[in-house]
Design a protein around this nucleic acid. Structure first.
Lengths: 162, 162
DNA sequence: ATGATAACTTGCATTTTGCAAGTTATCTTG
DNA sequence: CAAGATAACTTGCAAAATGCAAGTTATCAT
């Protein structure tokens, strides 16, 4: 499946094209929630803390689907429910998102404990392998508990700090 | 220096904070141009190919400066001229931008030759070292010639870093 | 001194956001 | 099984951001 929809591109630069897809204040947050917080439903994203408006959320989900980054799956047990899931194209954004996380916690005053982020930076490949494994196996336990508002297990390795 | 300006944050998540700074369609393109295309002036950005409006450009330069990502330097020889330069905080976005470049060229039909991008992906650390070296030494020769509209030299595996 | 240039502003029309309040199709419960 | 809940969206409208064309103000070049 090629992307034939938006041929009104500013330029052929991959960076520019990427930004036309998710270069806004919300898209990557949705992807983050799918990737590391185990979110799947509209309601999950709606209550994600940042306060996205429902119309914008619906719009972003549509665009991300159109771009082939997420896919909706109807849930058999409760047919009101739609479970969104990252495609492979979507999970491939993991390295970029990890860099964004690292940059943000290094250069801005964020809530994430610096020590843990530096741990993650030092074990980049390992973290990315784990993120992909979780995606493949549909493992929904949050990878970043401190971002998910609740204490939970994490084990980049058995080295506990703080 | 700490950033005391915008305390109206959606959340303390580093990803969210980062997106509030440059989560739009233009900011990262300016950073890209500074980082790999050797651009420095308003005029450079203005004619960068994507067609940014001058008022938006002025606004983005202001915001990026306020965020501590770029600094303007008045040019002695021609005082009309303002040379923008990435700060260390700005050049630290290189890993993220490289991932964005790689993702875009893998998953979208971009102009960048796949072979070269895969080369870059395979030598990520080396590329990043080179990008930083160029920043430190104010070396303005474009790193990505095919994105700069002209054929030029590139030597991803000459192994000549230092 | 006259004209070009660089780096912006300004005024508006158009588009995108954000907010509150629906709507529709499922469940769930008494 | 009727009467709520719920999930996932829409809709309407005001407010903010964006895009476009046309200035403006200091230099600088001839």
């Amino acid at each position: 499946m090629g992307s034939k929809s938006k041929l009104r591109r500013r330029s052929g630069c991959p960076v520019s094209i990427s930004l036309e897809i998710f270069g806004d204040r919300w898209s990557l947050l949705i992807i983050r929630d799918l990737m590391v917080r185990g979110f799947r439903t509209f309601k999950d994203f709606e209550g994600s803390g940042e306060g996205i408006a429902t119309n914008i959320l619906a719009d972003r989900l549509r665009r991300l689907e159109a771009a082939g980054i997420i896919t909706p799956e109807a849930e058999a047990k409760d047919r009101r429910r739609v479970n969104y899931r990252l495609t492979e194209k979507g999970i491939d954004l993991a390295p970029m998102l990890l860099d964004l996380l690292i940059w943000g916690s290094r250069h801005e005053e964020a809530d994430a404990p610096c020590a843990i982020i530096e741990e993650m930076a030092a074990h980049r490949e390992q973290i990315l392998t784990e993120v992909r494994r979780r995606w493949e196996q549909r493992d929904l336990t949050p990878l970043l508990p401190w971002l998910s508002g609740s204490a939970a297990k994490i084990r980049p390795r058995a080295k506990r700090q703080n």
